[in-house]
Amino acid sequence: MIASAWRRFLGSYLFFSFRRDRIAILSFVVLCTFFLASFSASLLAPFDPYDPIQIDIMDSEIPPVWMEEGDQRFLLGTDAQGRDLLSTILYGSRISITIGIFAVLLQAFLGISIGLVSGYFGGRLDNFLMRLADIQLSFSTLMVAIIFLAVFQALFGTELYEKLAIVMLILVIGIAEWPHYARTVRANVLAEKKKEYVDAVRVIGLGSLRIMFKHILPNTLSPILVISTVQIANAIVSEAALSFLGLGMPVTKPSLGSLINSGFEFIFSGSWWITIIPGVVLVVLVLVMNLLGDFLRDVMNPKLYKD
């Protein structure tokens, strides 16, 4: 079963175009390396940045190895608290990627359900839901998230906030971005609804829910896959921006954004690596996801977006 599915994948048009696209292969390899490295951070990282015993403040602000004052123990140097930058980056990207994936799962769940209902039932409900989506889209995610998290932080105090930060980030980014999925799914449902197989299952007498989820949904999966890569990249950027403003992950459990934030003030004293290295890591991570998203869009659904 799995073997035959694998063989079918190897013979597919997707895999065929993937093999011929050098940029796509490169992005895919880089992305996989990122995922593997960050999720095995506890094995790979030379230090544990959450363990205060391993941190020595005397080691703070050591530049990366290739510079004159570099230290063999710290490949990418250390930050202001004496944490090994390589280890914090590995752990930090794990947090960033986790938030990105879970936020997108939430978006997809909300958006797909709303899109299916909206497209399948149509009428007033459809009008109302899509108007809602328009309004939600015009308030950008970042604006809603900044205001929501800022008010939340002011209401509950910083201490409780730091404990809940990861959940709050997932919820806010997840809820704010549902319209992207809803619109895409709705447009596809409208097209699928007219096809004969839907009439057929309706005549058999299946319920609406079953038709929507078991028969229509599988046929809308490719555009969902296409937007998902880009959406994860967007979620990671939003998370980084929020953490940079001090509204996301705390410095004690840093994501890439809070690492950039905590190093920012040291840029003026010449310790550029504390900010720039996590920044470059973030850019590369987001860039390969965007490139992969572009590739998927071109191959699977050339008419989905205009730009």
């Binding site: 920012f264 840029i267 860039l287």
Partner: peptide
């Protein structure tokens, strides 16, 4: 496409 991938606060910092 590189420009779209760089968050605005990073451009500012750099």
């Amino acid at each position: 496409i590189i420009g779209i991938s760089i968050p605005v606060f990073l451009t500012a910092i750099m």
